[in-house]
């Protein structure tokens, strides 16, 4: 895949480029390298994407905590009480809150992606609005859930 260089700018020729702006893809084709993070101007969909991948990673760790909870229940009352005392401590509650927030955002951002996959909301304005809505809705769900948990006395510090 060779493209002719722009007139007077030989550095746009991938075969002679020394700047590292081109990369050989696994299929053997030479393609221009995407501009890296420091080149990008801040935009909300960028944060929506970064936070969604971060939430996905956090949830992967979260499943281990769910697995540990299942194990504690299956190992009987002593194991369960021990697990509940650790995960009911301030640090433990912070971990549960983090899992709630990650799950809520992965849910709302995932719905946003399904809307996009259906071909809707793809103009910059609509995409930005969808992202803001998914971020705010996730915060409302997670914080609201924990406010109710504390208000009803189901969870105490």
């Amino acid at each position: 895949m060779s493209s002719s260089p722009l007139p007077g700018d030989a550095s746009n020729d991938p075969t002679t480029d020394q700047s590292g702006r081109f990369v050989r893809q696994p299929n053997g084709r030479v393609r221009p390298l995407s501009p890296h993070l420091q080149i990008w101007r801040f935009h909300i969909t960028m944060w929506g994407s970064i936070l969604n991948r971060f939430a996905a990673g956090a949830l992967s760790v979260g499943t281990v905590f769910i697995g540990a909870w299942l194990a504690a229940a299956a190992f009987g009352p002593d194991a369960y009480a021990w697990f509940a005392s650790i995960m009911g401590s301030p640090l433990g509650l912070l971990i549960w809150f983090g899992i709630t927030l990650a799950a809520a955002y992965h849910l709302t951002a995932g719905i946003r992606h399904l809307v996009w996959d259906a071909g809707s909301g793809l103009t910059p304005k609509a995409a930005n609005s969808l992202t803001v809505v998914s971020l705010v809705a996730a915060g409302v769900i997670a914080v609201g859930f924990w406010i109710v948990l504390f208000a009803t006395g189901k969870v105490v510090l």
């Binding site: 009987g76 009352p77 009480a81 992606h113 399904l114 769900i141 859930f145 109710v148 948990l149």
Partner: peptide, 24 residues
């Protein structure tokens, strides 16, 4: 899997509510 997980995640939140503070 994303589509199926939407209702299951909401059910999970409901279940977390039911199990919080319920003890062994």
């Amino acid at each position: 899997s994303s589509l199926v997980l939407i209702p299951l995640a909401l059910w999970g939140l409901w279940s977390a509510w039911a199990l919080s503070g319920a003890g062994y």
